[in-house]
Deep mutational scan, measured.
Amino acid sequence: MTYRVRIENADGEVVTIEISADELREKGLTLEELLPPNARIVEVEEVEP
């Protein structure tokens, strides 16, 4: 499974990243732990691999 994640950074700019569930598991991280300081998740969407 892959996630498309929209993130708002500290400057108010919204960027989109895609990350797979396998990648998260391998790194032992959650989506929140990948965020840079002062950023927030705006939207998470599951996409087909």
Rank of each mutant, 00 (worst) to 15 (best):
L35Q: 01
I19R: 00
E26L: 13
V42Y: 04
E32V: 10
I41H: 02
D22Y: 09
L34G: 03
P36E: 06
T30W: 03
R25M: 11
D22T: 11
E26C: 13
D22E: 12
Y3I: 15
T30Q: 07
A21E: 09
R6E: 05
E45N: 08
A21M: 12
Y3W: 11
A21W: 13
E18R: 05
L29H: 04
R25L: 11
E18S: 08
R6N: 04
E18F: 15
T2A: 09
T16C: 12
I7Q: 00
E43G: 13
I41P: 01
E18G: 02
V47L: 12
A10V: 10
L34T: 04
T16E: 08
V5S: 00
G12W: 01
E23D: 08
D22S: 12
R6A: 07
I17F: 11
T2M: 14
N38T: 05
I41S: 02
L29Y: 06
P49V: 14
P36F: 04
E32A: 11
P37K: 09
N38G: 15
G28F: 04
G28D: 05
L24K: 01
P37Q: 08
N9W: 12
L24Y: 03
I17K: 01
A39Y: 13
R4M: 07
L34A: 12
R40K: 12
E48I: 14
L31N: 00
L29F: 07
D22N: 11
E26N: 10
E26H: 11
E8V: 15
Y3T: 06
P49G: 13
E48L: 14
T30F: 04
E18T: 11
M1P: 15
A21H: 07
L31K: 01
T2Y: 15
A21F: 11
E45V: 13
R40I: 09
E48Y: 15
G12N: 03
L29W: 07
V44W: 11
A39I: 10
A10Y: 09
E23P: 01
D22M: 11
N38K: 05
E8Q: 12
E33T: 05
L35Y: 03
L35H: 01
E48V: 14
V5L: 05
R4I: 14
I41G: 01
G12K: 03
A10G: 09
T2P: 01
V5Q: 00
P49L: 13
V47G: 04
V47I: 14
E32G: 08
I7V: 09
E43A: 14
T16N: 04
T2R: 15
R6P: 00
A39F: 14
E46S: 10
V44K: 02
E13I: 13
E18D: 07
V14R: 06
E43K: 10
T16L: 10
L31S: 00
D11W: 12
L29N: 04
E46V: 15
R6C: 11
A21L: 10
E32Q: 12
I19N: 00
T30E: 04
D11Y: 11
R4D: 02
E26T: 13
L35F: 06
V42G: 01
G12E: 01
E46D: 04
G12H: 04
I19H: 01
E46Q: 10
R40Q: 06
V5N: 00
L31G: 00
G28H: 07
A39G: 07
S20K: 08
V5R: 00
G12Q: 02
E32M: 12
V42I: 15
L34H: 04
M1T: 13
I41W: 04
E33R: 04
D22I: 09
E8I: 15
I7P: 00
V44A: 02
R6Q: 11
V47C: 07
I41L: 06
T2K: 15
L24N: 00
L34M: 12
I7N: 00
L35T: 03
M1S: 08
Y3R: 02
M1W: 07
E13F: 11
E18Y: 15
R6D: 03
E8P: 00
E48A: 14
I17G: 00
A10M: 11
V15D: 05
L24E: 00
T30S: 09
E45A: 08
T2S: 12
S20H: 08
N9P: 01
V44R: 02
I7D: 00
E32Y: 10
E8D: 02
T30C: 08
L34Y: 14
P36R: 03
R40V: 09
E48G: 14
V14H: 08
V5A: 02
E43L: 14
E23A: 08
G28A: 05
V42D: 01
E33I: 05
A10C: 12
V15N: 05
K27T: 11
V42S: 02
I17A: 01
E43W: 15
D11K: 10
E46K: 11
V47F: 12
P36W: 07
E46N: 07
E33Q: 14
E48N: 14
L29M: 12
A39H: 10
M1R: 13
N38A: 05
G28L: 04
G28P: 01
E45S: 09
G12A: 02
L35G: 01
E23Q: 09
L29S: 05
V14I: 15
R4C: 04
R40N: 04
A10L: 10
L29K: 10
V42M: 11
I19E: 00
Y3H: 08
A10F: 10
K27E: 03
L31Q: 00
V14D: 03
P37E: 08
E23L: 13
R40W: 12
R25V: 08
E45L: 13
L31M: 06
S20R: 09
V42T: 03
E48S: 13
L29A: 06
G12L: 02
G28Q: 06
T30N: 06
E13S: 15
E23R: 05
R6T: 15
P37R: 08
R4E: 05
E18I: 15
E18H: 11
R4G: 00
Y3N: 03
V44P: 01
D11A: 11
L29G: 04
A10T: 08
E46T: 13
N9Y: 15
R40P: 01
G12S: 02
D22V: 10
K27Y: 06
P49T: 14
L24G: 01
M1Y: 09
V15H: 09
V44M: 06
I17L: 10
G28N: 09
L24Q: 01
A39W: 15
N9I: 13
N9L: 15
E18C: 14
N38Q: 07
D11H: 11
E43R: 09
G28M: 06
A21K: 07
K27H: 07
Y3F: 11
K27R: 13
T16S: 05
I7M: 07
E43I: 07
S20G: 07
E33Y: 04
T30A: 06
R6K: 15
A21R: 07
R25E: 07
V47R: 05
T16Q: 06
V42K: 04
L31C: 07
V42P: 00
D11Q: 13
E8R: 10
S20F: 05
E33A: 11
P36S: 05
E45G: 04
A39K: 04
L29E: 02
